[in-house]
Design a binder for these strands. Structure first.
Lengths: 203, 203
DNA sequence: ACCTGAACACCGTTCAAGT
DNA sequence: ACCTGAACACCGTTCAAGT
């Protein structure tokens, strides 16, 4: 039965299914997507241009959940809140993140977030060049932290006998996501404190 | 001519070719690797178990270029030096990094580095749990910064009309790798300063 | 021990054919 | 407008056959 009465597909439906497939399987394929949607693989191409576009749609979907909001309080509190919100968006679907790093971004879907960060750093008194570096720094730290969230526990298993400092540290490690969350909060506090210290007038 | 007089392949030769292929093409395939090595794809399986093992071998190769060295000076200088060395190793082959994030690490090849960082943080007076968080923070920041290095210039093209703070910042952006390098140095200074400030006794 | 050729299952994508 | 079936090029991997 070609062309059923009710629409079987749309870019949104396909993106939803792809996110669910990555959440459960760690990756997605066009045939796998088609099967979940009870459709033939070629049908997908009536709605999306291909696999790359689905990845970009998933990225846009994740980014669209970021609520920038009005700045409240100190600029450093604004930066911390934006960084937490940014990571929260990634953390909702941690297994998507490796797909994002593999593929070049095609549209600045995170521009609203970047600009809110840039405004906060501008308020802090940084020069435009420093603002760019500071936004990049927050972006790098959040992305790296989000990747840490997707890492399995086994990463740290079977450590060598030597290295007492790291072994002692590892023995305190609980399961994810608590460990990654705690590390992110620790790092964010340090990073924001360090940015405050870099401020020209100590604002 | 099966079995030529001189060995055509080895795990090292295959890993070398894979790194070169990723450097130039952004990815590698078994047939592509075989062609470069003037061999049939099935020949590769006499030396490596498969694609995943090649990725792990590339990771190990990159990590093996990290020189930990003896700590000199303040613990915070040691941390900064290790972070720079870690990122330098990644930066030598930036297009490899997305492959690393896609695949789970199978052996703690970076343990020497992690332990040197852990020792520095222990010297600083952090508790074992804080040491783990601090090592994770440096790891996340370096990985995120290395991914930034692989990002093409176009990422920032065609920004919206709104958003003056970010637009002003973007106008200062030079080409990579200079832009990414400068952002990393800025972020590293902030992060290390922030870590010093988190120290129990202000050591 | 190690390279080859043939084969397999699988993937992304295209396109004419249907309604 | 949109789903299908068939087809294509390509990929990762296996394995018996060669020397």
């Amino acid at each position: 039965m070609p062309r059923p009465p009710t629409r079987l597909l749309s870019p949104e439906i396909i993106t939803d299914a792809a996110i669910r497939m990555v959440d459960t399987a760690g990756d997605f394929t066009m045939p796998g997507l088609a099967e979940r949607l009870k459709v033939r693989p070629s049908s997908l191409y009536n709605h999306v241009s291909g696999r790359a576009e689905i990845v970009e749609a998933m990225r846009a979907r994740i980014m669209s959940t970021i609520a920038v909001g009005a700045p409240a309080g100190d600029w450093s509190e604004t930066v911390a809140a934006l960084a937490r919100e940014y990571r929260r968006a990634y953390a909702a679907h941690p297994r998507l993140i490796p797909l994002f790093t593999a593929q070049t971004v095609q549209s600045p879907v995170a521009f609203g977030l970047y600009n809110a960060l840039a405004q906060a750093f501008t308020d802090a008194g940084f020069t435009p060049a420093q603002v760019l570096h500071a936004v990049t720094t927050v972006d790098s730290f959040v992305l790296g932290s989000a990747l840490d969230l997707a890492a399995p526990e086994v990463v740290w298993a079977n450590v060598p006998e030597t290295g007492d400092a790291m072994r002692a540290a590892l023995q305190t490690a609980g399961p994810n996501p608590q460990r990654a969350d705690a590390a992110f909060e620790f790092g964010l506090r340090a990073l924001v404190a360090g940015l405050v210290a870099q401020t020209p007038a100590g604002r």
